[in-house]
Design a protein around this nucleic acid. Sequence first.
DNA 1: CCTAACTCCTGCATGC
DNA 2: TGCATGCAGGAGTTAG
Length: 288
Amino acid sequence: MPELPEVEIVRAGLAEHVAGRAVGAVEVRHPRAIRRHLAGERDFAGRLAGRVLRAACRRGKYLWLELDGDEAVLAHLGMSGQLRLQPPGTPDEAHLRVLLRFADGGPELRFVDQRTFGGLSVEDLVPVGGALLPRPVAHIGRDPLDPAFDFDAVVAAMRGRRTGLKRALLDQTLVSGIGNIYADEALWRARLHWARPTATLTRVQARAVLAAAAEVMIEALAAGGTSFDALYVNVNGRSGYFDRSLAVYGQDGLPCPRCGTAVRRDPFTNRSSYSCPRCQSRPRRPHP
DNA sequence: CCTAACTCCTGCATGC
DNA sequence: TGCATGCAGGAGTTAG
């Protein structure tokens, strides 16, 4: 569910409320939430107790809290994960999966996840291309909001792919942080069709869609993220309101804000793509 | 090597 | 009302 802006808002909340605090008792309420921590529940809880959480970091949709000693608690929210701060004693949320208490007795950190696609794990930090990343994040590309994001290199790599443009935007090894919502919004802003073969893009077009992705995600960040329901909230349980600013995503049949043509929904890899049929003309030879 | 379908879950809206 | 179906903001795994 959450894409870069939503994950960044959560990261900022963790930096403000959790960084510098020592972990106390940890409770794993659902084993699936730590399935990527191969050593199991006891190891997970034991490894965290007494450790101080340092900086809150992010790459794409992954976020992590550095621990002393080249390790980190890695979190991925999947489709429905939330990290929330709650006063001790707050009743369990319906889908509470992991509970982190702190030695100072202050607000607890709770991982809540309806669909259990997300999870937590403790990982080694490894150097990758000038960054220090949790091992499972080593293959994830930089995101367009990263100061070190290399537009020229990504443009070249994208044009070398034999796939459709939206598939490329969603490939987290090429460019990270973009999900189904912001891919559709970036394509609309750049007036490009989701099935456009990446190999036929000009450099200017490829750069434009990446710039549009950066732009729309910065705007969403400023609006507190996109939320259609209670499934996305920040660490304090508040929703964002960027959904009011979406041009095409979820706007099937509604007028395109630019030309008034009805927005169309197409099936796309068992999900949906939303686009304006007039602004985003279908390529002569669309990528299947 | 690269690309794409499949798969893991729960809950909700929709239609018969 | 009850039940089946499809769909939802993700990504690792596997098959080709």
